[in-house]
Each structure stands twice: as structure tokens, then as C-alpha cells.
Design a protein around this nucleic acid. Sequence first.
DNA 1: GAGTGGTCTAGACCACTCA
DNA 2: GAGTGGTCTAGACCACTCT
Lengths: 235, 235
Amino acid sequence: MKRTSYLDVKAVILGQIRGGALRPGDTVPGEATLAGKFGCARVTVNRALRELAEAGVVERRRRSGTRVLAATPRDAELEVPSVRAEIEATGATYRYELLGRRIAAPPADIRAALGLGAGVRALHLRCRHWASDTAHQAEDRWISLDVVPAAREADFAAIGPNDWLIRAMPLSRVEHIFSAANADEAEAALLGITPGDAVFVTERRTWIDGRAITRARLLHPGATHRLVARTRAPI
Amino acid sequence: MKRTSYLDVKAVILGQIRGGALRPGDTVPGEATLAGKFGCARVTVNRALRELAEAGVVERRRRSGTRVLAATPRDAELEVPSVRAEIEATGATYRYELLGRRIAAPPADIRAALGLGAGVRALHLRCRHWASDTAHQAEDRWISLDVVPAAREADFAAIGPNDWLIRAMPLSRVEHIFSAANADEAEAALLGITPGDAVFVTERRTWIDGRAITRARLLHPGATHRLVARTRAPI
DNA sequence: GAGTGGTCTAGACCACTCA
DNA sequence: GAGTGGTCTAGACCACTCT
């Protein structure tokens, strides 16, 4: 007599949704009821339903119960590789180049992105990442010295700002905004492409404890860059 | 005397990692030990550590224990909105247009993407999505009639293929590949932009039970389109 | 007030993996 | 074989929310 696993419960409920026995909007029986049906403890049902809720398949609310959500394009998981890992995965040699470093008052849009007051100075870095002899990414980054004072002393000629920040401020919160644009003259020169060529643009901001650490604008030549996202585990 | 919550345990361990008391590679004390220290049940510690493992902060292995992972760019969660939702969120009016429908043998790359044998025919759709009077997305899609025979009868003039597929095949697995490109003549005409303008390209494939359902190539004018991804809950 | 989910406890056994 | 995590049970109390 095998015990009932939370995975069994999960699979049965999912099957009922897939098969149409439970349709969007329907209420899933309560934990106690299901536990009775499955002959298992209520905690077991709880874990099954909790994971389905995390996966976005059902919605749970106290008192009103568990309901099947409308089938919706599910959230996907994006692997955001470090530039270095991305390049080395292709077999190319990674090289990093610091093009400029200064401490200055950032323009208004950066100030807003970092939540800085007018006149506050921040660290501005311009870098380029090479895959063997091909320019792979151009980076324009501002770092808040209020939040990361140690950045003032860091040797960004030796280590890329992203790698440095990951070590200095682990477990930060990150936002990425992706878009496509036509390279201007300066960008094209940096990436070794023709002005007007499509570039894949990533704007990345990171926070720790609600304070903005950095804002980076990353450009990839559009012809070669791919970003992959997949839905999570086959539920 | 408040009971110890799994959230307390999680917060303490996270704090130790953030503060440097636990460094990447270090072993976190065993569940039994921590339960003793916190004065709580082992299951409580288990849940805390399990969630940290799901968040990618630690790695757990039987027998060898729980170890702190190297700080790494964390996976981000991508919200993939439906075209309709995306457009209506801006206050614009959504309109959908079917430009072409045929059943034909797909080219080799599509055959490969869908895992179809040579000579097998599939459903080919070309569509356009409008935000009020602006073209917002051009869609070129192939659907496997082997996997979704009902698509043959569906009225894709009335409902967009994505909306239809979500209803017909809920809970499928999805892969997105994003890139940037320059619009060619035909694409520019569809989107009402100038040839050479940057477009944001999404290639989406979906599967159910390991069988490929559909492959779509979606184009957005680069000047307006934004895709946002964020790391999960503030751990 | 009552019904549902959320979580904790204490104890138990299992499953994996290393020595 | 032994140590660690993985999960289940049975019972309990709490927290939220609808009526």
C-alpha cells in the first residue's frame, strides 16, 4: 500500500484541468475533502495545491477556496547569463575592455532610474566585451556611490563591473528591459557594425533593500544575439 | 512566546549570506541542527531551505548537505503578455486581422522546429495585430495539424491563433527566443515602418506532452516595443 | 460566526549518496 | 553502514475573509 504523495495529488488535479473536468473559474474541492478522497494528510494536499498556485495554474484564497485560473500565457523563466559565461560557452575567448571611467552628475533619466537627487555624483563606466576578435557587447553603466561606496576604489580595468557588483552585492533584485534599436554612429563604431544595423538593447537595473545600485545599458549586435526564455519545469 | 516560522529561518540564513557569515561554498548546518538552534520542528527548517534552494541561493544534496551557491546572475521571470492584454493596457483599441491562411508543406526550418516529417502538411497563418491605428505586431505562424487537428476547422478570422491555442491546448510548455533585426521590405510594409528599421523579433514554440504544437515568428516595431523581466520575489 | 487556507509540531520512515 | 535531506501523518491553532 503506497502512500499518496503530493506529486500524485498534483498530477491528478493537473490531469483534471488538462482533460477539461476542471475548467477555468471552477472551484477545486477543499483541502480537507481532497485529503479524504486521496486518503492522505491535509498537508500533503496543501503542498500540491500550493505548488500549483506558484506555477500559476490555480489561485488560492482563504475562505473562498481554490479556483482554476484562466489559461493564460504562462510566465517564462529567463536565463540571464553573465557575458563571460555566454561567450565562453561558444568556445570563443572572452576579453573585457574598460573604455572610460569618471565620476560625474548623471543626466536626468539616470538620476530618475537610480533615485538620486539633483547634483549627486555617481560612477560612470563605459566598457566593451569581446568574443575572440568580435565585439560582443557595449556597456554604458552608472553606479550609485551612495549605495556602493566601495565602487570608487574598485579596479574596473581588471574586472568587469557586473562581475564586481555580483560579488560586492549578492542577492540583489534585478529588472531587465529588452528592446530593439538601430545603432547610431558611436554605437556602430563600438560594436564594429554599420550605423543603422539592428542592435538588441538590454537596460538593466539592480536594487538591494529597495535602493538602486546600478543602471546599465547593454548593446548587442542584433545579427548574432539571441535571448532564450522557457516556461518552468513541465509542471 | 512566538513560534518560529519558516520565514524567520529563511531570513536569518539569507542575512548570514548577505552579511558574509556564510560564503559561497560554505555548508549550511543540517536541518536537525538548525531546528535545535531555532527551537522549531525540522519540517520548518526544511521548508525554509527548500525555498532558498528553489530561489537558487543554496544547493541541497542528500548526505552531503546544503551549500551556499556562488553569487550568480539570478534567473529572472518574464511576463509574456498576450498581444491583446498588452495593447489594451495602453488604452488603445485592439484589432486583429487575418492576412492569410493555407495548408501546405512547411519549409525545412519549420519542419525541424515542429518535428514534422518531409511532405507533412501544416497550417500556415499570417496575421497582424493593431493598437488603434498603429500596426503593433506581425505574426507568421505554423500549426501542426497532427497535434492539433481541430485547428483545421477553427475560424481564425474571428479569433487570433494564440488566443485559440491557449484555449484548445492549455498548460503547454513554451520557449521564446528574442532577437533584433532590420525589417525587410515586406515586414516594413506590414508594420508601417521603413525598411531597415529595427524590429524586435520573438520566435515562440510551444509543446504539449513533448509534441510541438506551433511555431510563431512575431515582429514588433523596435521603436515602441519593450519586454520586461524581473527577478522573482525579493526572496 | 463560520469556512477555507496557512502553518507548526513531533514522530516516523524512506531515499539517496558517500566512505 | 551511516548521515543527510525528502516526505508523510495526525492533530492543532491561527489568519483571513465572506456573510
